[in-house]
Amino acid sequence: MNGAPLSLRETLAWGALGALAFVGFWTLITTSGLVPRQFLPSPLDLVQRFLHLLTSPFAGATLPEHLASSFRRYAFGVLLAAAIGVPLGLLMGWFRLLDDIVTPIFDGLRFIAPIAWVPFAALWFGTGIGGPVMIIFAGAFPPCLINAYRGARFVEPRLIEAARMLGTGNLRMILEILLPAAVPSIVAGLRVSAGLGWQSLVGAELIVAAAGVGFMMVQAQGSVQTTTVMAGMLAIGLVGMLIDILLRQGEAWMRRRRGLDS
């Protein structure tokens, strides 16, 4: 228990065993007819359906096209969240008054799940690109703001004192002292934002959208095509994983460059 780490070979062997048991059990209950195909397709069916969707359209577009339209909204929403959240967080970290004004509003809104903005988003911006973007924004905004704020707030006080002694103005203080010092925290926040944004995107597309992977899944659900629904889940999971890996790499690169990790 909690003992020495397993060797690589043991890890791989147990991992393969676990994966095989999972896939084996899944295959067994589906191909034996224990669980109807309509309810749960076999792994093979799922992979075939996924490959099929890559080239042939469902709900008006092929899977890559749906993904592309999802991704456009997603990138738009997350970039907007970062473009507003990070500067606002930095300003709040520097100007006390702004902090005292924004924090109560922010705390009040924090407990409202991002998805609960869907009705207003649809009412204000429609269901094309505006509405979903607003929901992604609502999901991705808080970590951008909080991490930029914390990063700016907990800058080494000596740096600020030294800069102030040299007569640094507010703007230069924020751009040249707070921003660079807060970068690790900001990047960590962006990674969380990216994850939450992707999550909100799925929610937005399930409820209001006329294209995108979420829309494809809702259409498939409506016509009881379990395999297509699961292929959509697979696609969403793969893209989410890809985004996470890329951002982790970026974060690690940034930390190495700044000498934070050996």
């Binding site: 780490p5 889940m233 999971g237 989410g240």
Partner: peptide, 30 residues
């Protein structure tokens, strides 16, 4: 507790974890 359990369950987790919970909604309805 068990490194073996970790090694065996991890691959399944790797597949399920990146799927946002909201993406399970259509399947749950089906």
């Amino acid at each position: 507790w068990s490194r073996r359990a970790e090694a065996a369950i991890n691959p399944v987790f790797l597949v399920i974890r990146p799927i946002p919970p909201l993406a399970w909604i259509p399947l749950a309805i089906l």
